[in-house]
Amino acid sequence: TEEFVRLWREAVRHNQTLHWNGTDFIPGDEWAEEFARREEEKL
């Protein structure tokens, strides 16, 4: 979602874990980066 992408970019900028829907998205984590890339492509 647009909100997820916005929060993810913020988390990456501050190198912080994003807690989203009970899942931890960690900047630099391969799975999280791939998920975020797919979400961005949907926008």
Rank of each mutant, 00 (worst) to 15 (best):
F4D: 02
E40G: 07
E41H: 10
D24R: 06
W8L: 01
R9Q: 14
E30A: 15
F25C: 06
E41L: 13
N15W: 09
W8Y: 03
V5H: 04
A11R: 00
E34F: 05
Q16V: 14
G28C: 12
W8P: 01
K42R: 12
F35T: 03
E2D: 12
K42D: 03
R9D: 10
L7A: 14
V12Y: 04
P27D: 01
L7Q: 10
K42E: 04
E34Y: 06
T1A: 14
A11D: 00
F4E: 02
E2H: 13
W31V: 08
R13C: 14
T1S: 14
G28T: 04
H19F: 08
H14G: 10
N15Q: 12
T17R: 06
D24Y: 12
T1P: 13
F4G: 00
E10R: 05
V12Q: 11
A36Q: 01
W20L: 05
N15Y: 05
V12G: 01
A32E: 01
A11H: 06
F25N: 01
E30P: 15
T1Q: 09
I26R: 14
N21D: 10
E34Q: 12
N15D: 08
G22E: 06
V12M: 08
E10L: 08
N21I: 05
W20Q: 01
H19D: 03
N15H: 09
F4S: 01
F25D: 01
A32M: 03
R13L: 15
R9W: 14
F35Q: 05
G22A: 06
E3M: 10
E41M: 14
N15T: 04
P27I: 05
F25V: 02
P27Y: 03
E3C: 09
R6P: 04
E39I: 14
T17I: 15
F4H: 00
R38S: 10
N21F: 14
W31P: 03
F25M: 07
H14D: 11
R9N: 13
E34H: 08
Q16S: 12
F35W: 11
W31F: 10
V5F: 06
P27R: 02
A32P: 02
H14N: 15
E3I: 10
T17W: 08
A36G: 06
L18N: 01
W20G: 00
R13T: 12
F4L: 01
E40A: 12
E40P: 04
E3P: 01
W20M: 03
W31E: 07
E39Y: 13
E30G: 11
N15R: 08
R37V: 05
Q16M: 14
D24E: 12
F35L: 05
E3S: 08
F4N: 00
E3K: 05
H14F: 13
L7Y: 05
F25L: 10
L43S: 06
T23R: 15
E10P: 00
H14E: 11
E39D: 02
Q16W: 12
G28L: 03
G22L: 04
E10M: 06
A36C: 08
L43A: 07
D29C: 12
E34K: 09
W31Q: 08
W31T: 07
K42N: 07
I26W: 07
L18E: 00
G28V: 01
V12D: 01
T1V: 13
T1I: 14
W8G: 00
F35K: 03
E34P: 00
G22P: 00
R37W: 05
F4C: 04
D29A: 07
E34D: 13
E40Y: 12
E10H: 10
N15L: 07
A32W: 03
R13W: 10
L18A: 03
G28R: 02
R37D: 04
V5G: 03
R38T: 10
R38Q: 13
H19I: 08
R38I: 10
G28I: 02
W8M: 00
E39Q: 15
E40C: 07
H14Y: 13
P27F: 02
H19Y: 06
F4M: 00
F4Y: 03
L7M: 09
A11I: 03
L43D: 04
T23L: 15
E30I: 13
T1E: 08
P27M: 02
G22I: 04
N21A: 13
L43P: 03
F35A: 06
E33N: 06
E41W: 11
D29F: 05
P27C: 00
D29V: 10
E33I: 10
E41Q: 13
I26A: 13
A32N: 02
E40D: 05
E40H: 08
W20H: 04
I26G: 03
E33R: 04
R38F: 08
W20Y: 12
E34S: 10
A11Q: 01
T23G: 07
D29E: 12
N21R: 14
E30Y: 12
R38P: 03
E10Y: 08
A36E: 02
E30N: 10
F4I: 00
A11S: 07
I26D: 07
T1N: 12
H19T: 12
F25H: 08
F25G: 01
R13S: 12
F4Q: 00
E34V: 06
R9V: 11
I26E: 09
E41G: 09
K42H: 06
Q16E: 11
N21Q: 15
V12H: 06
W31D: 06
P27H: 02
F35P: 00
R37Y: 06
D24H: 08
R38D: 04
E2G: 10
H19P: 02
A36H: 02
E40L: 14
L43T: 06
R38H: 12
R37Q: 09
G28D: 02
G28A: 03
D24K: 09
R37N: 06
D29Y: 04
R13H: 11
I26M: 12
W20I: 06
V5P: 00
E30Q: 13
E30H: 13
R9H: 15
R9M: 12
F25P: 01
G28K: 03
W8R: 00
I26C: 10
R9A: 13
T23H: 15
R37G: 04
L7I: 04
R9E: 13
D24A: 12
A32V: 02
Q16Y: 13
R37E: 05
L7K: 09
R6N: 09
